[in-house]
Design a binder for these strands. Sequence first.
DNA 1: AAAATCACCTGTCCGC
DNA 2: TGCGGACAGGTGATTT
Length: 259
Amino acid sequence: MPELPDVEVFRRYLSSTALHQQIDSVNVVESSILKGVSTSKLKKSLEGERFLSAERYGKNLFVETSGRYWLRLHFGMTGFLEYFKKHNDIRHVRVLISFKNGYKLAYVCQRLLGQVSFEKSVDDFVSANGLGPDAMQVKLKDFRNIVDGRSAIKSLLMDQKKIAGLGNIYADEVLFQSKVHPKAACSRLGDDKVKEIYKNISKVINYAIKKKADPSKFGKNYLLPRRSTSDKCPNCGGAIKKIKVSGRSSYYCPACQKK
DNA sequence: AAAATCACCTGTCCGC
DNA sequence: TGCGGACAGGTGATTT
């Protein structure tokens, strides 16, 4: 689930729920989810503190604390947050933060592909990991420079070091909206197509956020709810095709999206 | 240099 | 009903 739009929805969710409440206790249920921080340090550094604000960069959620660190949450393929008072049937809770007001915030991650860490700042993490510009903030000038070389356009859109935030399904959606084949070589795209892809990145992201990143709420001209070879292209009615690009399943319309 | 492969994990679905 | 394999919205290391 968690690509940029999902994480942005999580950010807004956390901002409207868990901010400003004093943390009573932290329970690390599965310590293998922690990266570069021990269970005891996480507990010691969070207990008694409060969350002050929440930011997002790419697919990462950063929560500012009243202590020394920012808490970074990455959600892998299956992560999400749940804020609740009474709830006893949530599976795969990996970190549980209890607040003095009686509520709890659960970081849930079924496949353990997510990460929880402490960072000095958002900028620190971004530069240390060489992340590209956030997909919601990137300027056309910079995007033009990024789209270069022989690589397939979809691989580039998914490369977090080039542009941060898009993943497998939103990269597919952007290319579908732009009528560009996922394997099209970057260097062979005309400037008009580059501009169209650029515009569709923000268009798709903003639309998805508005729909709470829930594909079942997407309109009929979107590919996202139709990621199946038994489905039809919403534009031309042709069959949706499935291929591998960068090892990931890619759905597209061969009639509308030519190389 | 880019793409394929594998590895990390858990769960579900499909075919035999 | 059971079992094996493929696959799932991420990412990093290693190999072609």
